[in-house]
Amino acid sequence: MTVNEIAKKLNLTFYAGEEIAEKLAKGCYIGDLLSLAMSKVTAENVWITIQTNMNVVAVASLVEAACVIVADGCIPDEKTIEKAKEQDVILLGGEISAFEAAVALSEMGI
C-alpha cells in the first residue's frame, strides 16, 4: 500500500511530501508522546498523532516513518510544514479520528 493510496482512501490533505508519496507503508502507531512514538514507530510505519509542532517531523525523520497523519482536524504549524518539506517527511492531515483512520488502514491491510 502506498502513502498516496492511504491519502485518497482516508480523504487526507497533503501538507508536505506529495511528490514522494508513492512510498510504501506498512504497520501503524498511534500516539502523541514523542518519546513513546520514537521507540514504537518503526521504518515504513504510518504514525497517527494530534501533535502539530515541528518535533513531530524530527521524530518521523529519525525513525523513518512512511508518513505522519495529523488526525482530528488538527493543523500542523507553518514551521512544521516547512521542516517536513525540508526533511522529506510526508505530512498529512484530515478530519478523521485516529480510531477511524486505524480501522480504515486495517481494512486496507496495512
Binding site: 502523541d32 508522546l33 514523542l34 518519546s35 513513546l36 512514538a37 520514537m38 521507540s39 498523532t49 501533535q51 509542532n53 518535533n55 513531530v56
Partner: peptide, 16 residues
C-alpha cells in the same frame, strides 16, 4: 504540550 516531559528521556537513553 509539545509531547515531551513524559519522563521517558533518560529511560529511553538507557534502553537504546
Amino acid at each position: 504540550e509539545l509531547g515531551f516531559g513524559a519522563g521517558m528521556g533518560l529511560p529511553n537513553m538507557k534502553k537504546y
